[in-house]
């Protein structure tokens, strides 16, 4: 095991952190809870890199509700997401994803910003953030910019974050509590497993006509980045969720995913499970 060495800085405020990112010529790796960093370090990553620790940047640790949206500081932990009444009520998919995230110990340290920046195709909060149409605030010393989450990821571990930028805030539109939200993570064990497939679905059904008035489906771990399944959503929109329609939707979803085979599962198994899990969640109609 080759442990990498690195130089360490700590920032106690966002302006401090942005100044360091602005002035430093060499690439700086941000560190928050460290639950991915310390593992990647043992794999030899981040050798001789400059590490900027933002764990104690408390101004990034918040969940705020204003009008129709919720703003989340990037340093918010999974544990804080689970405990938040606002998230439970208005961002249920994110609450459900945080509940099955890794383990209690890891949820106490892992941050939402960290899970996004790590840019794993299997990141557990990502399908939830995709169905919540999250926007990411990327800040630099000179300006802020807002990027829709589906544009942020360029591939496994690749994002459009510039070296002088950091993710400071995640903004989501409140989801009407009338939506039914579901999240399923398929892993080799319940805790601490990297997902073989993860799936977030939220839907709104008209109580009189029983027709779907809105549906959003997002998959993780079955493509180079987390994806929405727009064709499957389109197939279900304005329809009644009958068994035959659900079967057709599951088939359509299989054509929208493009998994690979790896140590956790084969591409074929992931495809099968993409369909099965969607059927399972759609059949569980609580309205």
């Amino acid at each position: 095991m080759s442990l990498s060495s690195f130089s360490y800085w700590q920032a106690l405020s966002v302006p401090d952190a942005l100044k360091i990112l602005h002035n430093e010529q060499q690439q700086v790796k941000l560190l928050a809870g460290g639950t991915d960093f310390t593992v990647q370090r043992k794999e030899g990553l981040w050798q001789d890199k400059h590490i900027l620790d933002i764990w104690k940047t408390k101004e990034l640790d918040y969940i705020r509700e204003s009008g129709k949206s919720i703003q989340l500081g990037a340093r918010t932990t999974m544990d804080e997401l689970i405990d938040s009444a606002v998230i439970r009520k208005y961002a249920k998919p994110l609450h459900l994803a945080a509940c099955v995230f890794a383990s209690p110990q890891i949820r106490n340290r892992a941050t939402l910003g960290g899970n996004i920046n790590n840019a794993s195709p299997a990141g557990d909060t990502l399908p939830a953030l995709f169905v919540l149409n999250a926007k990411l605030k990327l800040s630099s010393a000179k300006k802020d910019r807002l990027v829709p989450i589906h544009e942020f990821f360029l591939g496994p571990r690749k994002t459009l974050l510039q070296p002088n930028e950091m993710l400071t805030e995640i903004i989501i539109d409140k989801l009407d509590p009338k939506y039914q939200s579901d999240f399923y993570k398929l892993g080799e064990r319940n805790a601490v497993a990297i997902a073989i497939v993860n799936l977030a679905v939220c839907r709104k059904i008209d109580p009189r006509s029983h027709k779907v008035t809105d549906i959003r489906i997002s998959y993780g771990s079955v493509a180079p980045t987390v994806i929405r399944a727009p064709q499957t959503e389109q197939l279900l929109l304005h329809q009644t969720l009958t068994e035959s329609l659900i079967n057709k939707a599951a088939e359509r979803a299989q054509s929208e995913v493009s998994p690979i085979s790896d140590v956790r599962a084969s591409a074929d198994y992931r495809k099968e499970m993409s369909a099965s899990l969607l059927k399972f969640l759609l059949k569980n109609n609580r309205s």
Binding site: M1, Y8, Q10, L31, G33, G34, T35, T38, V39, K42, D53, W55, D79, A102, S103, P104, Q105, I106, N108, R109, V192
Partner: peptide
Amino acid sequence: CGKGECGTCTVIMDGKTVNSCLVLAVQ
């Protein structure tokens, strides 16, 4: 395991459980 999967390194830090193998001492 040394990577946060087994939990045998669990300690309580500021009132919360953490995997001490995943936290830097400086943190």
